[in-house]
Design a binder for these strands. Sequence first.
DNA 1: CTGAAAGCGCTTACAG
DNA 2: CTGAAAGCGCTTACAG
Lengths: 339, 339
Amino acid sequence: MKRVTIGEIAERAGVSTGAVSYALNGRPGVSEETRRRILEIADRLGWRPSLAARSLSGSRAHSVGLVLARPADTLGVEPFFMRFISGLERELSGQRTGLLLQVVADHAAAVEAIRLWWAERRVDGLVLTDLYAQDARLPVVAELGVPAVLAGRPRGDGALGAVWADDAAAVDSSVDYLVALGHRRIARVAGLPALDHTQVRVAAFRAAVLRHGLGEPRVVETDYTPEEGARATRALLSRPDRPTAILYDNDVMAVAALNVAQEMGVAVPGELSVLAGDDSQLCVLVRPALTALSWDIQAYGLHTARVLLEMVDGRPARSHQERTPVLTVRGSTAAAPAG
Amino acid sequence: MKRVTIGEIAERAGVSTGAVSYALNGRPGVSEETRRRILEIADRLGWRPSLAARSLSGSRAHSVGLVLARPADTLGVEPFFMRFISGLERELSGQRTGLLLQVVADHAAAVEAIRLWWAERRVDGLVLTDLYAQDARLPVVAELGVPAVLAGRPRGDGALGAVWADDAAAVDSSVDYLVALGHRRIARVAGLPALDHTQVRVAAFRAAVLRHGLGEPRVVETDYTPEEGARATRALLSRPDRPTAILYDNDVMAVAALNVAQEMGVAVPGELSVLAGDDSQLCVLVRPALTALSWDIQAYGLHTARVLLEMVDGRPARSHQERTPVLTVRGSTAAAPAG
DNA sequence: CTGAAAGCGCTTACAG
DNA sequence: CTGAAAGCGCTTACAG
């Protein structure tokens, strides 16, 4: 189980280890012929660089980190993350970069994990998800100077990369669609109010409702769990002027809403139209299937990794906008009930 | 942004770097007093070991790897993995060990990832999930000598750790429960036939059906997706002697079955009892809520990590058995219909 | 108990 | 184009 080292390759090739290093890394400093010879020997011996040695001298960890700050239970049932992660990895593994994952309960723990990773130089950069409007991780990332990319809207002075979609436009199109179907009492069950994108979407919702002259916008805030989604739905449906359509900030709450409506004897979509937040497999798993905002979460992850790797490489931070989510209409939405 | 090194600490403490290393690692070789002085200086300077340097000399990567060999879509909607991962990390982060994650499409790609990780010494060990009865990863792991723990039944010569639950007993108890409710036509919608635990459960199911004298056991195999779960359900319910109860190998298929039953006008649980495989949040998200086999997946992950870390530490591989999954009865099961 | 030194496996100026 | 050497930041025998 002895490792093959460049020393061994150098010996066999009759050159110095420096030459081997140059050859292996495709840098100038060796003739084409010796390069070819060295590569062949390395290949024959099954040589692989020692990550540790490489990191120590090259000062690069060849890994990036993703800290997920959520309780395990809400993570599990939320299909977003696995799709996002596999998008990240599509890009990372092509670049021989590892993905270090940590799941923690809150941002305080996330900050600690970030500090430790960076102090140990375990990662070259970070992916930040679930951004808060006031986010404790951002000042820390700035202080440390870690390359990082936001899975969310651009922020600050442009030192951080950002990959995002136009949530406001997506919400707009949802409201437009419902209004076109004749709905005038439209409510929104929002996600965690601390999240930046929750705020963006709520603001867009309010603006759209006012623009259409639908009266005072009704928004209920939740923590994204099915329990709160159900409670919010129950509250909305209990009022005499109950909404004829509700927009949910994720899929899990929309599914929960379906049950509440059924229990309360409110027909979907006959008396109530339901719109889900992301278009995960959950939406087609239930009846009626859920109309939802669709977007390519794998691509989202892939682009996020790409922007991060560029930064790690020393190129400037970019902001990349994904295609705006588009409504996929299914059975949970229909024309507003008469009257 | 200069790193604090043990050289700096040694200088300030007036000792050699060797002494600093001993002190920092809690090994003998320094007096209590100098140790305390060194620790204090390290703390004041905010010293953190360089992972790369440590790995290079200590020959340990301080990371373990998890390769998930599944298409991204089926991963996303399957709540198992995130819960398992957060269990792993509960243990790993306590031991300052990173979790490297890779998502690939099949076992061939998984084997490649494993070889590369090990050749680069990026990981100290591996967690293997979704074990096939014939698993291409096992001979490779044996060949390389990578410490690895199976999230599944023990195998081979005991060189690998294993953490598992008694699936057969769990299936037994499910069948017993249904028989006690008067069911005599019970079918099973199984997961991927190549998976070891699928085979175990199917065998247990057949045995239980025969033991109760319920005739020829009916089993339909699937790939775990909601689509195949729906198709299997449709096939089973289309027969004149349709089952009055069906056991599903995961939650997603059980949810899909609910829709099929509804579309076919088969009442759940009045005419059909539905049992789900794992007890994830999905089960309480639908109506009727799903009776399911409950077990603590986070604990499963935690124990898996623990066994692996022991092996990385040089201790012998262990096999650890989780508590047997227990049936959580909800609205989707009831007494068999009369007649 | 302590110090000086070699070594882990690479990368990278620096001379030839 | 090529070689010899220093250095990355630790750990660990090996002498004193």
